[in-house]
Computed example of a mutant assay.
Amino acid sequence: MDASVLFLLVPLAVGLVFAVVLAILLVVGFNKKLEQPGAVPPADLAPGAPPYGRWNAQVVGEGLLGAGLGAHVGVVDVTGRQIAFVPDGAAQPAWQVPCHTVEVRKRGLVNLDGADLELAGPMGVLLLSVSREHLNRVVTNDFKSIRERGYADELIAVLAANGARVLR
């Protein structure tokens, strides 16, 4: 084989491998499998009923390593004008408080701990990430992190409609 042909084929092969790997990453990154319903659509609510919903949640610990070492994973439920956090494997909520006693604030984009929300109320001040999808505990997925910011907005809207105070 002529060296000039080999000189052209090697970059072409490397580029092809790169394109295939990139395509696989994009497909995996954009694929979502919903585990929780999130906010119940308004059309499905009884007239005059407050909105409700359920999200996978991670209550993040403090510090740079808080997302891994101090995190508690479970489900956040908003129903009957109450918000509750039920840790994985628990039969009862770790905490349950009336929504009107809660203040919620969406955090900025750059958070080393990964939490999108700050909740304050009788349960204390908590940093929280929510998702309709399975929560990644070991590796991150940037596409999923973007979707989770939308799920955080959804939870904020449900909390506000149930009497929580939204801080900016």
Score class of each variant (00 low, 15 high):
132 R>K: 14
146 I>E: 10
62 E>F: 12
85 F>W: 08
95 W>E: 01
72 H>Q: 13
83 I>L: 11
114 G>V: 04
110 V>Y: 08
143 F>T: 14
139 V>T: 13
96 Q>C: 06
83 I>V: 15
122 P>S: 03
128 L>F: 05
101 T>F: 08
75 V>P: 00
96 Q>Y: 05
103 E>H: 14
106 K>G: 07
104 V>C: 08
75 V>H: 01
94 A>K: 15
136 N>T: 04
106 K>R: 15
134 H>S: 12
132 R>V: 00
129 S>Q: 12
136 N>E: 12
80 G>W: 01
130 V>D: 02
141 N>C: 06
93 P>L: 00
112 L>A: 13
60 V>I: 14
60 V>N: 00
129 S>Y: 04
123 M>L: 07
82 Q>L: 09
146 I>A: 13
103 E>F: 09
74 G>Q: 06
112 L>K: 14
92 Q>W: 02
150 G>P: 10
116 D>K: 05
115 A>S: 15
97 V>Y: 04
103 E>S: 15
138 V>W: 01
135 L>C: 02
64 L>G: 11
129 S>R: 13
113 D>L: 00
83 I>Y: 05
76 V>D: 02
112 L>E: 11
79 T>G: 12
82 Q>V: 03
136 N>G: 13
144 K>D: 14
132 R>D: 01
137 R>C: 08
90 A>S: 15
99 C>L: 05
82 Q>K: 13
67 A>K: 03
142 D>P: 14
70 G>Y: 05
142 D>A: 13
109 L>S: 11
117 L>W: 02
123 M>I: 02
105 R>N: 08
87 P>W: 01
81 R>S: 15
138 V>H: 07
60 V>P: 02
63 G>C: 06
102 V>T: 12
62 E>Y: 13
119 L>M: 13
113 D>E: 06
68 G>C: 05
128 L>V: 15
66 G>H: 03
97 V>W: 01
110 V>M: 13
151 Y>W: 13
84 A>T: 03
84 A>Y: 02
134 H>M: 10
73 V>N: 08
63 G>M: 04
100 H>A: 14
84 A>Q: 00
118 E>A: 12
75 V>G: 02
77 D>C: 03
129 S>W: 04
71 A>L: 03
110 V>L: 15
112 L>H: 13
109 L>V: 09
112 L>Y: 08
86 V>L: 12
101 T>M: 12
63 G>Q: 06
117 L>V: 07
149 R>Q: 11
122 P>L: 02
121 G>T: 07
117 L>E: 08
67 A>T: 06
147 R>C: 05
78 V>Q: 00
119 L>T: 04
108 G>N: 10
135 L>R: 04
94 A>V: 03
77 D>I: 02
118 E>H: 07
89 G>I: 06
106 K>H: 07
145 S>P: 02
135 L>N: 04
113 D>G: 05
79 T>V: 13
106 K>A: 06
76 V>Y: 05
120 A>E: 10
104 V>L: 09
107 R>G: 11
142 D>N: 11
76 V>H: 01
82 Q>N: 13
135 L>Y: 03
117 L>F: 06
126 L>N: 11
115 A>W: 01
70 G>Q: 07
78 V>A: 00
127 L>R: 15
125 V>I: 09
109 L>Q: 11
115 A>I: 05
93 P>Q: 07
91 A>D: 15
105 R>G: 09
131 S>F: 01
122 P>I: 01
102 V>W: 07
134 H>P: 13
64 L>K: 12
